[in-house]
């Protein structure tokens, strides 16, 4: 039933049995309902989100799978990082509930119409959502945890090579 999709949308074949379709975010529900009625792609297997901080967007890939489980279709929507909000797909796919909950916690994306967006894996998390690119893990760790002492004698190897070369030269010149 990939012909239906090829007729109506611009579909790219990324790999054997893997297709990609890029759409506007305001047409998301409309297009996904049409795809699930008119083609074999009836299941949602994953909502994958990528943070393209340099373009100021989140790219969400709704990965759909056919009834036969033999082809995958990635439907990509791009939304602004600042006012990130999308309609929920709860009415189309019940499994979207937990995936949206996960993304809400990790990226702070608001899914309009999903009222179950409470804590998923993190508890009492008050910082910015951790999978956003601006969240610096190392800075957070340095602020909240101590490193175990005893490893301060680590040498920078490049500086050490330079120092030893200079030293060797000096002793040669001294002679």
């Amino acid at each position: 039933m990939i012909e239906f999709l090829k007729k109506h949308y611009e579909i790219v074949e990324k790999a054997p049995r893997l297709y990609k379709l890029q759409i506007e975010s305001d047409k998301l529900v409309e297009i996904l309902s049409s795809v699930s009625i008119n083609s074999n792609f009836i299941t949602l297997s994953q909502i994958a989100c990528t943070d393209w901080i340099e373009d100021e967007v989140f790219a969400l890939n709704y990965i759909l799978t056919t009834k036969e489980r033999d082809k995958n279709l990635m439907v990509e929507v791009r939304i602004s990082r600042v006012h990130c909000s999308l309609p929920t797909l709860l009415n189309l796919y019940p499994q979207a509930q937990v995936m949206e909950r996960d993304l809400h916690e990790m990226y702070g994306i608001n899914f309009r119409g999903n009222d179950t967006l409470y804590d998923f894996a993190l508890e009492n998390w008050n910082e910015i959502p951790p999978l956003r690119r601006e969240f610096d893990t190392l800075a957070y760790v340095n602020e909240h945890f101590d490193f175990r002492i005893g490893r301060e004698d680590n040498k920078d190897v490049k500086a050490e090579v330079k120092r030893r070369k200079a030293q060797a030269k000096e002793s040669k010149d001294g002679k």
């Binding site: 490893r151 004698d153 680590n154 040498k155 190897v157 050490e160 090579v161 030893r164 070369k165």
Partner: peptide
């Protein structure tokens, strides 16, 4: 960590450091 030790190392060892593992 790359650290220096008192023992003799390979003369080709440009940095004089050897690895120590945590």
């Amino acid at each position: 960590d790359m650290v220096t030790i008192a023992k003799d190392v390979n003369p080709k060892n440009a940095s004089g450091c050897i690895p120590r593992i945590d």
